[in-house]
């Protein structure tokens, strides 16, 4: 892993201005990402993990707005870019890879047309050479008989193939950063594995950094170098991946890791987390996890600072003070 920084998010705040008040979906988060590195952003629904992704892409939906902080991509602050510049960056530098191959391709165009359409943005070349590039791309993601496949419509391909086509489109303009947002309802294990392998493949070929937006620690364990755990709009713990699994510092991380059943051990009763994730328009004072936390004490009425618990490992919990 080299040391060049691709993304540096600092004190990012994305708020939603609704009729009933301000919802702080992302409330001051910071992290960085280097070339070839994979970061997992783990959280439950409403934790702000997806909104972090949309913020980086400059696609925060109405009535949301980025109200503070900075997103530095290759040394430039994305928040100062115009819409047109952002559109360009989205296509070429930062790329979203959808997990669901069925909905990401247009059913009425051939796979070749869709690839060429993307490539035309990058290369000012005649159609024939663009088609050749498309063939190379498909071959890169290991689609056999790539040339014939160009004339296929998406429905003529299997799910795994379509996934690869989506992968090919996303690497067609040599991205530096891939964002993989995973829907809550999961795919079959074997299909998911194929998708994860494809992303690793792409990463090896392009050296891109990857951000995984996920609720699943299994994906983090398999894919990531770094992990950031989000709860109610904030990163509550952040560290290298093995450190997090070995020494979780935040009670939320600890409880979450324990509450997931393990395929290789037997337990009678899983330790579970009481209560439910808080709704963002009615957050408790102080630490937002305190109402569900078995260790909560007086001090938790103030929001905890970020404490360093080990090398490259921080936690927002007063117990780590």
């Amino acid at each position: 892993m080299t040391n060049d920084l691709i993304l540096q998010v600092e004190d990012l705040q994305t708020h939603f201005f609704t009729r009933t008040g301000v919802v702080k979906a992302v409330d001051g988060i910071s992290f960085e990402l280097r070339r070839g590195e994979t970061l997992g952003i783990v959280g439950e629904s409403g934790s702000g993990k997806s909104m972090t992704a949309w913020s980086i892409l400059g696609m925060v939906p109405h009535p949301g707005r980025i109200v503070g902080g900075s997103i530095n991509y290759l040394g430039e602050n994305l928040l100062e870019k115009s819409r047109g510049e952002m559109r360009d960056i989205r296509g070429s530098g930062i790329c979203m890879v959808m997990q669901d191959p069925l909905t990401s391709l247009n059913p009425v165009f051939t796979v070749g047309d869709q690839l060429v359409e993307t490539l035309r943005l990058e290369y000012d070349e005649p159609k024939r050479s663009l088609r050749q590039r498309a063939v190379d791309l498909l071959a890169n993601v290991r689609i056999p008989a790539a040339e014939e496949r160009l004339t296929n419509f998406p429905h003529q391909m299997s799910g795994g193939m379509r996934q690869r086509v989506v992968g090919a489109i996303s690497i067609s303009r040599a991205p530096n950063l891939l964002i993989a947002d995973e829907p809550t309802t999961s795919l079959d294990a074997t299909i998911q594995l194929q998708y994860l392998r494809l992303l690793k493949d792409i990463q090896e070929q392009t050296g891109a950094a990857i951000i995984f937006i996920t609720h699943d620690f299994g994906i983090v364990a398999r894919m990531c170098d770094r992990v950031a755990v989000m709860y109610a709009g904030r990163i509550v713990e952040q560290s290298d991946v093995e450190d997090m699994f070995d020494y979780p510092a935040h009670p939320y991380t600890e409880a979450l890791l324990q509450s997931v059943p393990d395929l290789d051990t037997d337990v009678d009763m899983l330790p579970s987390i009481e209560g439910q994730p808080p709704s963002l328009d009615a957050l408790p004072e102080g630490c937002s996890f305190a109402p569900r936390c078995p260790y909560a004490w007086d001090k938790c009425r103030d929001y905890p600072d970020e404490f360093t618990v080990a090398d490259r490992h921080t936690s927002r919990c007063w117990r780590s003070e």
């Binding site: 439950e44 079959d188 620690f217 409880a255 979450l256 509450s259 997931v260 059943p261 899983l270 579970s272």
Partner: peptide, 29 residues
């Protein structure tokens, strides 16, 4: 949500023990 799953699984297990329920579970995890 992940933090809720263990609650529901445990509830189902407790109910099974209390009422001697049989389950046909369909799951891919």
């Amino acid at each position: 949500d992940v933090s809720i799953r263990a609650q529901i699984l445990n509830l189902l297990k407790e109910l099974q023990a209390t009422y001697e329920l049989s389950y046909l579970l369909i799951a891919h995890n």
